[in-house]
Amino acid sequence: MTTAEKYVTAAYCVVFALVLAYVLIMALKLQRLERDVDELARRAPDEDAEDAPRETAQVG
């Protein structure tokens, strides 16, 4: 591999790495969202989870 080839590969690897880092950040975010949903699901009334937001929305 010549130096030029090494540098070009490095440049494309950098692009790839940054996009993957973005994916990692998005994954962390999704994990957090999932935890939030779990928490909400626990907090929601047991009888019918789908009714709960609608009921309270009418009150508010």
Binding site: D36, E39, L40, R43, P53, T56
Partner: peptide
């Protein structure tokens, strides 16, 4: 939306 939902709940 989750945040809104949490406020409602």
């Amino acid at each position: 939306r989750l945040r809104d939902l949490r406020e409602v709940l």
